[in-house]
């Protein structure tokens, strides 16, 4: 794109070579810790924590040990299931709330939409640790009983502490402002002509969103959802502080592999690898779709 406007940085061969080398160095610097983490996962614990070496006899033993399940202890399977549901439900909730919000901020802006937008992001200003004690007390004391009369279902909560529902609520709240901001910028790019055209055809509001706007912003929706998934999947602080018994998530499982007396680097590395794989794969798959979607314009 830039090359159409004349000579730019990178046209000169020497410069482009140097830039290439610099990019590789930076890239490798970023990648090396991940590489080392994966490598450590295939070592013995003693091997991993003594002199660093590239050459060793790799073993799957750490992964096998991590998969072993013991009664009364958080297992990989359990933690992954908890994480999966918490992240899935909170992400869906975020999208359901953020899409209408983004619509009303971008396509038919409400009055003082700038203030509204600023309000959303201002909820992220407070360091989360500052809200920890209030959150703890609210969660501790939240209790209710809901009965569905005909079917006879009863949901009863003594406390929200140590439940998956608490993390669903918190992760939804945590990701919502960000999702609204991101989605608003994607929605703002929807051409006015398309919306006007659909209005002329007499499409309803819901139909307009469903058949005109969503197809155009779907890469943006996917990108936002992916970000929510990543943030929820990796969240550790709230989980460890408010949810440390019964419904723990994957990051907590990873952290529980540490031991205060002994070598644990290889086990911890293997656990991190296992916890990372799902997001890496999700990101990879989503990335390809997103780039393809973003490359296709609406009216060209």
């Amino acid at each position: 794109m830039a090359s159409q406007t004349g000579p730019v940085l990178g046209e000169n061969k020497v410069v482009s070579l140097l830039l290439g080398i610099a990019t590789w160095i930076v890239g490798l610097l970023f990648f090396f810790p991940i590489f080392w983490l994966v490598l450590n996962g295939f070592k013995d614990n003693l091997e991993a924590s003594t002199r660093p070496t590239l050459f060793f006899s790799p073993t799957l033993e750490r992964f096998r040990e991590l998969g072993e399940e013991q009664a009364g202890v958080l297992s990989f399977r359990e933690a992954a299931t908890n994480s999966f549901w918490i992240v899935l439900i909170s992400t869906i909730l975020v999208m359901l709330l953020a899409i209408p919000a983004a619509y009303s901020l971008a396509i038919r802006p409400v009055k003082k939409w700038r203030d509204v937008l600023f309000f959303f992001i201002s909820t992220k200003f407070l360091p989360i640790v500052g809200a920890l004690m209030p959150l703890y007390f609210i969660a501790q004391q939240a209790s209710w009983r809901i009965e569905v009369p005909i079917v006879g279902w009863v949901w009863e909560y003594d406390t929200l502490l140590n439940t998956r529902l608490l993390l669903v609520i918190l992760y939804t709240a945590m990701n919502l402002p960000l999702a609204v901001w991101m989605l608003r910028s994607f929605f703002a790019e929807v051409p006015k002509e398309l919306i006007e055209a659909s209005q002329m055809d007499g499409t309803s509001l819901l139909g307009q969103i469903k058949s005109v706007i969503l197809p155009i912003v779907s890469p943006g929706v996917a990108a936002t959802a992916l970000l929510c998934v990543i943030f929820g999947w990796n969240e550790f602080f709230l989980a460890v502080q408010l949810n440390n018994a019964g419904a723990s998530t994957l990051p907590q499982w990873v952290a529980s592999q540490e031991t205060s007396r002994g070598n644990f680097i290889a086990t911890l590395s293997a656990a991190s690898v296992l916890a990372t794989i799902p997001v890496v794969v999700a990101g990879w798959v989503a990335q390809k779709r997103m780039i393809r979607g973003l490359a296709m314009g609406a009216i060209k």
């Binding site: 013991q70 009664a71 009364g72 202890v73 958080l74 460890v240 440390n244 018994a245 019964g246 723990s248 952290a255 529980s256 592999q257 540490e258 031991t259 205060s260 007396r261 002994g262 644990f264």
Partner: peptide, 29 residues
């Protein structure tokens, strides 16, 4: 988390729960 505690975790079901009927849920931090 330390080696001796990991041991007790693995012994709990057979050596404690089987006798007492008390289920133990561990949180390792």
């Amino acid at each position: 988390g330390n080696p001796q505690m990991e041991d007790i975790v693995s012994l709990t079901p057979d050596a404690f729960t089987a006798d007492s009927g008390i289920e133990v849920e561990y949180t390792i931090l």
